[in-house]
């Protein structure tokens, strides 16, 4: 018996436990992007994809012991994180992380010596996110800049924003402290802000 708050998730878990192939298809589609974001925090893309595939095969047996103490998503993300950590440990490697605080240099240079705006933001991003996303060029530009973020920042941002984990869960899955998670989110958001601003002002990526 599982005990998550979501009845649809409970049904999905029951179907997975019974070996229903369609339920796995639905779960793979729903949860693999987040699992890949976790794996990319630790590993290069190719190794990360391998780990996620291997995890799904493991899940077929492991789901029988899933008790619902956390949501299915968090459980899957922890499985991926543990596998990645084991892989790194056996290879005696560590994730290179930069937790230096502060402003992105491109943003920092827009303040004068007294800490006031020298080059303030000119435009307001008034349109809703959904309206803006109808702009294909902006969407491509976001892809490009998300890809260019350091892995650690991108994974933190993806888990927190796109996959809507709570801070505690992200810290747990990625093995970072709460203050270091704040730094990763802060730096990633500044970069995305600067990108969107440039795009809005110039139409260029």
């Amino acid at each position: 018996m599982t005990d998550t708050d979501d009845p649809d998730e409970n049904t999905l878990i029951s179907r997975m436990k019974s070996g229903d192939q369609q339920s796995y298809h639905e779960a793979v589609r729903a949860y693999s992007p987040g699992m890949l974001a976790v794996a990319r925090f630790y590993l290069d893309r190719s190794s990360a994809e391998d780990i996620v595939q291997d995890c799904w095969v493991t899940v077929i047996d492991a789901i029988q012991t899933f008790e619902g103490r956390s949501g299915l998503k968090t459980w899957l993300h922890r499985i991926v994180a543990n596998r990645c950590k084991n892989r790194l440990r056996s290879a005696k490697r560590e994730v290179p992380m930069d937790f230096s605080d502060g402003l992105d240099p491109d943003l920092d240079s827009r303040f004068n010596a007294s800490g006031r705006w020298e080059i303030p933001p000119k435009l307001r991003f008034d349109e809703s996110a959904d309206t803006l996303m109808e702009n294909g060029a902006l969407s491509d530009c976001l892809d490009k800049h998300l890809s260019a973020l350091p892995e650690t920042q991108r994974s933190a941002l993806m888990l927190y924003e796109a996959h809507q984990h709570k801070s505690d869960d992200v810290c747990n899955i990625l093995d970072v402290s709460a203050s270091n998670l704040r730094v990763l989110l802060h730096r990633a958001r500044q970069k995305i802000f600067l990108m969107v601003e440039t795009f809005q002002e110039t139409g260029e990526c």
């Binding site: 996110a129 996303m133 902006l138 976001l142 995305i192």
Partner: peptide, 8 residues
């Protein structure tokens, strides 16, 4: 821009 990233 954070909302935009989330929607994207």
């Amino acid at each position: 821009s954070t909302e935009l990233m989330k929607a994207h």
